[in-house]
Design a protein around this nucleic acid. Sequence first.
DNA 1: AGTATTGTTGATAG
DNA 2: GCTATCAACAATAC
Length: 262
Amino acid sequence: MPELPDVEGFRQVLSEHTGEPIRAVRVRDPGVLRGVGAGRLAAALRGHRFERPRRHGKWLIAPAGGPVLMLHFGMTGSLSWHSRQEPWHRHDRVVWQFDDGELRYRDMRKLQGIRLADDEAQAGRVLGGLGPDAREVSYACFGRLLSGRRGRLKPALIDQAFLAGLGNLLADEICWHAGVNPLRAAGDLDEAERAALYRAMRRVLRVSIKARCVPARDTWLTGARDERGGPCPRCGALLSRRRVAGRTTVWCPGCQPLLRPS
DNA sequence: AGTATTGTTGATAG
DNA sequence: GCTATCAACAATAC
């Protein structure tokens, strides 16, 4: 699941429980801890309170009165609030318990995980290699980034060091909305195409954040991409699919013509 | 059995 | 130095 919109939803869940003292940290599967043990994680957070959490790309960053909790949700992670009576799910890996309930980090595959930075400076170092957040980047910056990129558009959009927050679904959805082929050379796009991409990115992100995920609407590519041999929701043409940057990439050959192959 | 999966990283090649 | 591809990680679903 988690791309930028999903993580933004997890940030909202956490933000509803700031200011409450953390009574206990239960590590049910230390396999999701990165660079910190269960003991140190619990000791550093117990008695502390989460402050206003923020997000950069797909990272959720939660300062807790000194130490900074950093969560990445990989491909299947989530963060949700539960009553203490509700039985744990088998994939609940770490649980933060409060007086009136608990936050649960759930993750089936354990492709990413949880870090603990000692302070903001250390947290900043973890995020140091990321590009600007896709929700925050200005059009001027976005345009400069694309102009200076040598490879194809699709790999650029999902490269977190280039732009942080977009994943496979979002990148395809944005290209489809913009009418730009994901195989185009990023640096060859003209001003109108860059503008269309930026506007599509803003719109797709706004709607997806409201839905808390990239919605599988029948008027969006995401609602059609899983059906192999399915039609483009806009023009009815047979959707194309190909592996690009290691990920299945779907586009409409009619709406997103490949004029200048790269 | 074989394929696929919304993420990231490291090795390798061009 | 930059970029592309692939395998690996782990746990499912079809």
